[in-house]
Design a protein around this nucleic acid. Structure first.
Length: 512
RNA sequence: GGUCGGUUCGUCUAGGGGUUAGGACGUAUCCCUUUCACGGAUAAAACACGGGUUCGAUUCCCGUACCGACUACCA
């Protein structure tokens, strides 16, 4: 019988969900869906000191924004409930105890001072890697060195203790990674990691193995930073006797800084002026804030598409993928091995592609809202016309209104540099006549008729249109650049257009 | 330092024993456009280095260099 494919995303609620975490969630989701399996969310909140209020909601909202949904989660529990490790606390100890019974773990009573002293002693003795391991544990206070009575007495007295895994002295640990192939590590380089902390909570290592086993996880896709501890996890599956159902591992390449080297961090975003988080974030306790892609104007589908390509590609030239197309095309084999530098320019390009592909009616919603924020009411019909005019020129929805409001708002001033260079007597002559002709214009005033009329006007004055075009733009929009002027005229309408021209004629003066 | 991982244009990448080493972003130029942008076209731009193996290596092997992750009672 083949097992149901089950994947999980297991973030820690210690702050805003980093973009790398979002990508991990996405890849897990894509693979789960591709395989017709289930995707679950598990909150890894075993470190009570690092818990940050609001972080869990942030994770939820971020993934909802991107349409990454869970079949099972704290808010939509399935038969693996509960989905918060803090709520699973009572179940971990028995597994740790089981490991002690099997001789694969032990109690340790060393204080942090004693641990520190041990490390100092080893460092002084030039031991390359001071760690709690098969050698050093014989000199520490634990159930391997202490008598059974002594251990029992310490336990009974309520003395704080941890439970450590007993790493074998010599053993070749073989780890299969779906992205990297076989990775071999010798157990002598591993240390006796803490499994149960003195506060009664499991560490990540124990909780992750126990929960993945209990939740019947078949594939673990996580960041490369976990690769070094993966051999320990393999060992734990073996110690528990769960090798048969051990999940497949895939360690994703890291997301790197755009400049220089190293893992992408919040500081890079602040420094280079782009977000590193999906949503805006504010830690109410320490006032820490971070900018989000959503608030910067990235469309969820575009951001998702961009994210998917950070370390994965379909193997052909296609670049624009919807979520369902991603699911269809996704495969772990096509995930790269090397770290990926974060390139915000590509993210913008994706956003532009998606924005231009959106129907005007949807884009108009953004424009109407932004106009309303400025206290301006724009009709749907007008908004759609404006959107059509400028959508090819913008990266973010907020620019739609910013770049077209000059049409809606009254014309007040003129670009002085253009005025001094382009405002001349020819322009005054053409515009004076054009305003008159427009006022008398009868019939539908569209881009074509606006242009025909302007050409006729210039011809009647025996002036080349090209010589006065900049002045015409300046007079009607106040600026030297902008979208197709004749289309602008059409939206303005004959009355407003004539009014603007007369205002310009009255305001600007010919210098030469 | 140790362990592990990685290395194709500036960036994301395709490819893989014999290729003009392909695409995309970005950049530059040209075309379109009576502006700017969009769009179209073109260009510059890469196999880290050294040894093997081989008729032939960017591709396979081994070293070196460089980069990174990890090295907590954090995940």
């Amino acid at each position: 019988m083949t097992r149901e494919v089950r994947l999980r995303f297991a973030p820690s609620p210690t702050g805003a969900l980093h973009i790398g975490g979002v990508r991990t969630a996405l890849y897990n989701y894509l693979f789960a869906k591709k395989m017709g399996g289930k995707f679950l969310l598990r909150i890894e909140d075993t470190d009570q000191n690092r818990f940050v209020p609001g972080a869990e909601e942030y994770i939820k909202e971020s993934l909802e924004w991107l349409n990454i949904s869970f079949d099972e989660s704290p808010w939509n529990p399935g038969d693996s409930a509960p989905y918060r490790q803090s709520e699973r606390k009572p179940m971990y100890m028995q597994y740790a105890l089981d490991l002690i019974d099997r001789g694969h773990a032990y109690y340790a009573f060393d204080t942090s001072e004693e641990l520190e002293a041990m490390r100092e002693r080893l460092t002084a003795a030039r031991v390359v890697q001071p760690q709690y391991n098969s050698i050093t544990r014989t000199q520490m206070k634990n159930s391997l060195t202490l008598s059974e009575e002594e251990v029992a007495a310490r336990l009974a007295s309520g003395e704080p203790y941890v439970i450590r895994v007993k790493i074998p002295r010599k053993e070749e640990v073989r780890l299969h990674d779906m992205i990297r192939g076989w990775v071999m590590v010798h157990s002598s380089t591993l240390d006796d990691k803490v499994l149960m902390k003195s506060d009664g909570m499991p560490t990540y290592h124990l909780a992750n193995i126990v929960d993945d086993h209990l939740m019947r996880i078949t594939h673990v896709i996580r960041g490369e930073e976990w690769l070094p501890s993966a051999p320990l996890h393999v060992l734990l599956y073996k110690f528990f006797g769960w090798e048969e159902t051990m999940p497949e591992f895939a360690h994703l390449p890291l997301l790197l800084k755009p400049d220089g080297n190293g893992k992408l961090s919040k500081r890079d975003g602040d420094k280079l002026g782009f977000p590193v988080f999906p949503l805006n974030w504010e830690n109410k306790e320490n006032g820490e804030t971070a900018a989000g892609f959503r608030e910067q104007g990235y469309l969820p589908d575009a951001f998702l598409n961009f994210l998917a390509f950070l370390g994965w590609n379909p193997g052909d030239d296609r670049e624009i993928f919807s979520m369902s197309e991603l699911i269809e095309a996704f495969s772990i084999e096509r995930i790269g091995k090397s770290g990926t530098k974060f390139d915000i320019a590509k993210a913008k390009w994706f956003n532009e592609q998606y924005l231009r592909a959106m129907p005007n009616s949807e884009l108009a919603v953004f424009l109407i809202a932004d106009a309303a924020a400025d206290g301006i009411v724009v009709s749907t019909e007008k908004a759609e016309a404006l959107v059509e005019l400028v959508k090819g020129r913008v990266t973010f929805p907020a620019e739609l209104w910013a770049q077209s409001k000059f049409i809606v708002l009254p014309l007040s001033d003129f670009d002085q540099e253009i005025a001094s260079k382009r405002w001349n007597q020819d322009a005054v002559n053409v515009l004076t006549s054009y305003a008159d002709r427009i006022s008398q214009f009868d019939g539908p005033f569209d881009g074509i008729s606006a242009k025909t009329l302007l050409e006729a006007t210039a011809e009647s004055k025996e002036i080349k249109l090209g010589k006065v075009m900049q002045a015409v733009r300046l007079a009607t929009t106040g600026s030297g650049v902008g979208p197709d002027l004749m289309e602008v005229f059409a939206i303005l309408g004959t009355q407003e257009l004539a009014k603007r021209i007369r205002f310009a004629l009255a305001t600007l003066s010919v210098i030469d």
